[in-house]
Simulated assay, not measured.
Amino acid sequence: MADNGKAVVITGCSTGLGRASALHLARRGFTVFAGVRDERAAERLRTDAPEDRLRPVLIDVTDEESIVHAYKRIREDVGAAGLHGLVNNAGISVSAPLECVPVDELRQQLEVNLIGPAAMIRQFLPLLRAAATGGRIVNVTSGVGRVALPYLSAYAASQFGKEGLSDALRRELAPLGISVSVVEPGAIATPIWDKQAATAARLLDQAPEPVAALYRKRFTAFAEANTATATTSGTVPDDVARAIEHALTARRPRIRYRVGRDVAVGALAARLLPDRLLDLILSRSV
């Protein structure tokens, strides 16, 4: 175990925010069980952090058998000390007009971003309850989980759902001494943008051309604006890693951590502006 006696599980550590957070927490003295989808990603992580601090674990959050197998392995490692934290970071982004999103793609979006975290929480709660200091759950969502953008309806549905799940669980688990925090990153340059662009191109190509033609010009402008925002935002993955660390270590962790100026501005606008005015502002910005 880590010198500070705290072990955490993070999902989605192959790239991006999960990888940065796993490495950051390992450097800070946690024992990190880093969820990855394959051995190649596991090996890349092993080369960048001491094995006694960072331990890659194969976890597919859409596969219940995979979750149970990871749980048993981690339970053996942590023993009676239990698990200090569970960070649900794994996620995908389906970006396309809803009319161009097949139901199977919508279902996969919800499986990874919403049902997967719920399944992880259900499975790991016994270990979180066993932690002497009270376990902590950190759900990584998005600024789109507070302000829904056009052409991100599937993604927004999953993240709004994860926000609602977090609110209910926070109230449900407080009597058991388990805290629930949400980390809401804004636009950050990570590999998710390349994956999102590839998915968007594929979905538009698969849609009937008369339908795709209705959206192609506006959607292309939206995608380009989104990418530009991510590459110039100034927010980096380590900003998210530090927010996760605070949620795991603070005496009174925050309910929400908004990471990035764009998220803070969006949340303020959503709270203060009438919906129709917010719609107008977003349509003009796109």
Rank of each mutant, 00 (worst) to 15 (best):
K217P: 01
G266N: 11
E51V: 11
P237I: 10
E65H: 11
S142D: 07
P237L: 13
L248V: 11
N113L: 14
G266S: 15
V183E: 08
L273Y: 13
A20Q: 09
R251Y: 03
R271H: 09
R170P: 14
P56G: 04
G16N: 08
G161V: 09
A119D: 01
F30M: 13
S14C: 08
R44W: 02
E224R: 11
R107V: 14
T231A: 02
Q159M: 14
R216V: 04
R136I: 10
G91H: 10
L165W: 02
P50H: 07
G91M: 13
A247P: 09
D52N: 04
E64S: 04
A90T: 06
L114H: 04
P150V: 00
A212E: 10
L272N: 07
T229G: 10
T227F: 04
R75K: 14
A207N: 01
W193S: 03
L278N: 13
R170I: 02
A130R: 15
L125Y: 00
A200R: 13
R170Q: 11
M120T: 07
G164T: 11
H24Q: 08
L54H: 02
D38T: 03
V259Y: 03
Y151A: 09
G16E: 11
D52T: 04
G260W: 02
L98T: 07
G186H: 13
G91E: 13
T229F: 08
P237Y: 02
L110K: 01
A157V: 01
A156F: 03
A174E: 13
A174Q: 10
Q109T: 01
L152R: 09
G177D: 04
D3S: 12
E76N: 08
G234P: 14
R37S: 12
L152S: 12
M1H: 14
T199C: 14
D63C: 10
T227Y: 09
N4K: 06
L58F: 02
V9M: 06
G12F: 05
K6F: 05
A228M: 03
E76T: 09
M1G: 15
I244W: 03
G134V: 03
Q123K: 13
I255E: 15
A270N: 15
L127M: 15
R171D: 15
A49I: 12
Y71R: 08
D77N: 09
I281D: 12
G116M: 12
A26E: 06
M120H: 10
R73G: 14
D77A: 14
V182N: 15
K217F: 05
V78I: 08
S166H: 10
